[in-house]
Computed example of a mutant assay.
Amino acid sequence: MVVENNRQAEVDALSQRALEAFVVRARRVEEHSLAADWDALVALTTMQMTMVQLDDGETLIRQVFPDEETVESAAARIRPILLEGDSCFYQKALKALGYFCRELPQDAAWIRATRSEWRSRVSPATPDEAGYWVAVSNTLTGQNYDLDRHKLAMAWIYGDVVHHDTTRRDEGNAFGLFERFRGAVPLVAWAMVGAIELLNYIRALHADGVLQLRQEVLDQPVALKSTTWEHSAQLYFAPVGTQAPKDASLPPSKDWIQLGRTADLSGFRTEAGGQLLRPVRSTNMPELPSPEEVEAARTPAGGWKRDQLAAWGIPWPPPKGWKDELATRWKAEQRAGVEPTNPAPSPDPGPVQGTLDFD
């Protein structure tokens, strides 16, 4: 009885780890920009196309996909869920879910159907299951090639994106990069849909008390909302070779000088001989406008001219949230004591200005 209880405890723990690993990764997939529009993501899983009959009897076929870089980043996020050896592998999570729902017939039936669908969509056994295949002929050499959609997708994912698998690249090379990408889009999209749907099913079972996941697995950050790093701290400097502090909770030794308004750091050099501090703004960096200056630069139509945005370092077309990003950077410079374009005279020298140079 003791042995049996220990064995069940081991299976419980193993299944719990598989579910929690999947939840963390699936939540990161859920945060991807492609998943922001659920209907559009689902549409990508199908072969949606427009066809126009031309006068010469041929048919013009057109498909529109997201840009490759967006799909590439989605493929990177979903890839561990596709790999059998990874802790967050989809089928491991599904097996663990089946273990916890073994006495719940309705949930067990859903899990069996989901497993079958995943296998047919993500790991098709035949070209027919893959959805379509492409055949091309080289009129110069007389060679013929054919490859199904799944193999074309794998050639893009593992030959062009997350690895440089030469075997897969050689296999898909005759079809070209776009054909490999075209095969990969529905696979990546469907894997995202499947992962998010399983994630939501797990959430529902957790809410019903069938599963007892650790709350941090459901709450911990899994994707960055902002890539502006800002942190208040005390900075200390010491000559190269000075022993670094071993305990972050204790103040450093007397050999370390705290950076402050009156600190003299002119004698400090890096190993390469460069000056430790350099001016915050190089001569090539654009002047950051204040939020008021941004608003004042609007055109009569309510927008901004391309050359004005370029002067502020903003690409065209301007990305979403560019005004907030400019305002954040401008405010950070004000807090750091960087003088604005037209500074008001002040007797206060302000904080020490400079950025760290670790060259």
Rank of each mutant, 00 (worst) to 15 (best):
R7D: 14
Q8C: 07
Q8P: 05
L14Q: 04
S15H: 00
V24T: 13
E30H: 08
S33W: 13
A36E: 15
M47L: 10
M49Q: 14
V52P: 01
D55E: 10
T59I: 14
V64R: 03
P66R: 13
E68P: 06
S73H: 14
A74H: 04
A74P: 04
A75M: 08
I81V: 14
I81K: 00
S87V: 11
K95G: 10
A96P: 11
G98L: 01
F100G: 13
C101I: 10
R102V: 00
R102W: 03
I111L: 14
I111D: 06
T114E: 09
S116V: 01
S123N: 14
G131N: 05
Y132Q: 06
W133T: 07
W133H: 12
T141D: 08
Y145D: 13
L147W: 05
D148N: 12
R149D: 00
M154A: 08
W156R: 01
D160L: 01
V161C: 06
V161I: 02
V162K: 04
D165H: 05
R168T: 12
G172I: 12
G172Q: 06
L177Y: 15
R180M: 01
G183T: 10
V188A: 01
A189T: 02
H206P: 05
Q212Y: 05
L213V: 03
P221H: 00
P221K: 00
L224D: 03
K225L: 13
T227V: 10
W229L: 09
S232Q: 13
A233R: 01
T242Q: 10
Q243M: 07
A244L: 12
A244F: 11
L250G: 08
L250H: 10
P251H: 07
W256L: 06
G260K: 12
G260F: 11
R261S: 09
A263W: 12
V280K: 04
R281S: 02
T283K: 08
M285Q: 05
P286M: 02
S290I: 05
A297H: 02
R306C: 02
D307P: 02
Q308N: 01
L309D: 03
L309F: 02
L309C: 04
L309Q: 06
G313E: 01
I314Y: 00
P315S: 08
P318L: 05
R329S: 11
W330E: 07
R335Q: 15
V338Y: 10
P345Y: 02
P345A: 01
P347E: 12
P347D: 14
Q353T: 07
G354N: 04
D359M: 10
